[in-house]
Design a protein around this nucleic acid. Sequence first.
DNA 1: TCCGTAAGGTACGCCCCGTACCCTACAAGG
DNA 2: CCTTGTAGGGTACGGGGCGTACCTTACGGA
Lengths: 193, 193
Amino acid sequence: MSTRRRGEELERAILHAAAEELRQNGYAKMTMDRVAARAGTNKNAIYRRWPHRAALGVAAYRHLSDAVMPNPDTGTLRGDALEMLRRANETWSSPHGAVLRGLLAAAADDPELLTLMRERSGADTMDRAWLAMLERAAARGEAPPAASHPRVATTPMMLLRAEYAMRGIPSVPDEVLVEIVDEVFLPLVRGRG
Amino acid sequence: MSTRRRGEELERAILHAAAEELRQNGYAKMTMDRVAARAGTNKNAIYRRWPHRAALGVAAYRHLSDAVMPNPDTGTLRGDALEMLRRANETWSSPHGAVLRGLLAAAADDPELLTLMRERSGADTMDRAWLAMLERAAARGEAPPAASHPRVATTPMMLLRAEYAMRGIPSVPDEVLVEIVDEVFLPLVRGRG
DNA sequence: TCCGTAAGGTACGCCCCGTACCCTACAAGG
DNA sequence: CCTTGTAGGGTACGGGGCGTACCTTACGGA
């Protein structure tokens, strides 16, 4: 039989297979045997590269998603914030986000994996985007400079996250996003004057 | 052999055994066989009462915890809020809380269980306590009446929750609690004047 | 050409969930 | 007191999944 795949080529094939499994069935149903079969190899090749299923899951997720979440710039703080929340909501309620949530749930009691996830999932990038948004608003005179605080910047996303944790799977309704912005985020920014 | 346990007596024994397993090993390691053995019975008796492991886990958790979180009343909004957060932090970082987190993680993609959990875990009671705290502060003239809004009331606990979800297992340091109160909660209340 | 390295194949041990089936004690009612 | 229904006890098993062991086979570089 022609060429037997090796090294990187094989690795890519495994990651691709795992990512497909994630997308179609979610993490809970991503089994090592299925991934191996789909990649046209066997579990040995996988376990030589990743120590456990969770590690493969994280790696495959990263492969699956190069989620870019660029800075919106609508001209108003309210507009920017809503846009950010809406994009995040869209991402998280997509099949893609379901995968992420499954992984997060599985990694909940494994700190090592948790940090891996956070690095790969671009949470830090997002936080920086929120901070930048606050600074733009401050430059426009729309928000007090004291509002450019990390804890303030992360609050809306935290609330959205928590909303997902409370409710089950479905997407968070837009009213909730508006409420987070109008009842919490903007008053909070105002209150730091 | 003398009396064979039946009905309620047996049910209590099973729940007790399951709760002990939860406390000692956490949900992930609570197996049906172990619970049955510990209760001195067998899996049949369990499966006649609960449809799956998760359901037993939730029921046992409820049995384990009649977590009471009474209203603190320190005289200031800041004091009350900090006290609430500290108590919650204590609870959640205890072994007890580890069980809760394990269950929540396991129920993450099972909406039915999620609602069960929320009912049993007293989250609603807690939300009401926060709202009452805000209303007391408003009565004292310490906070604007407009701050007595559900979304405002739930924000600090949401942030604490999210903190647990981000970091792994350990307890959240007290500085973070103080920051949540001073940098987010109080400015938010102020900003709603 | 030879040899080390890495892939393939396969089987297995272990654990756990949930179910099936049959046996046995208990309680209630004739 | 005996009969009968109900529910617990014992046990075995199918199914699935993780991770490991061990051997065989191709590839690629010296």
